[in-house]
Amino acid sequence: MALLRPFARTRRRGADGDRVWTWLMLPGTVWMTGFLIASLVLVAVLAVGTTDDLGNPRFGFDLSGVRALADPAYTEVLARSLGYAVLTCAVCLLIAYPVAYTIALYGGRYKHGLIAAIVVPFFANYLVRMYGWSVVLSDDGPVLRALRAVGLADGRTKILNTGVGVVAGLVYGFVVFMIIPLYAALERLDVSLIEAGRDLYGGPVRTFFFVTLPATRQGAAAGLVLVFLPAMGDFVSAQLMGGPDQIMIGNLIQDKFFQGQNWPLGSALTMLLMLVLLIGMFGYLRRTRKDEAEARR
């Protein structure tokens, strides 16, 4: 067909096509640039801004907001947020792997249904789910009652208002972001690889660590990033599950914009959060690039 087409017409059509496609892209791109990119720039600008006597933000160049970040009160919160987020990633991986593995390898004809049964409620209202989870983990809730019944907890054990509660909230909130990529990776895994490992006298554990895990490493890496991003910026879990000693960087940001009314400091904290996440993303991208380069060789 292409051969029959007159050359001139093809060329005209190609250029004409690009024009149409550009016009199609334009509204969305302009919209996003206008709202999103501009607003992110505004955050950066305001991070070095000042406030007037009434507390209204003013543009300017003043590093007091940025310098305040070095205050131990803030570095402690940042360190705690990082700790919670990393712990959440680890717990999510530990929970999601066996679940995704079981469904992908043993789910049979029910596996699509099972994955849907995980994914669908996770996209339902986050607040209501977290609220229900805080009821479940409360002192009279079913989890602590069950733990007390089997002797793993006594009357004084608490989950709410502790760091464990906050991490439990974050895990409940975001574990699905680990399950989806892991499930996708495990479903594509060629089971004969596992069998080959067994045939070569690898026990189940050795086969898992030398065959299955490396083959699904990219799914796990994607899951870790997808969990880390929202966990690091969350402020609902720390509010519902934690107490004043468990606040995260998201709570600080919220406080600076709503209660404290210190916008430059709030903006500086937001930029700091962005920076941490960008470092995480960058590490992930470098890792996958390397993996892909190795795979190509």
Binding site: L36, L40, G233, L277, M281
Partner: peptide, 16 residues
């Protein structure tokens, strides 16, 4: 950009 920006950042940015 929105996919790799946590919601709290987009929220703060839009409000500003």
């Amino acid at each position: 950009v929105p996919l790799i920006t946590p919601e709290i950042v987009t929220g703060v940015a839009s409000m500003l």
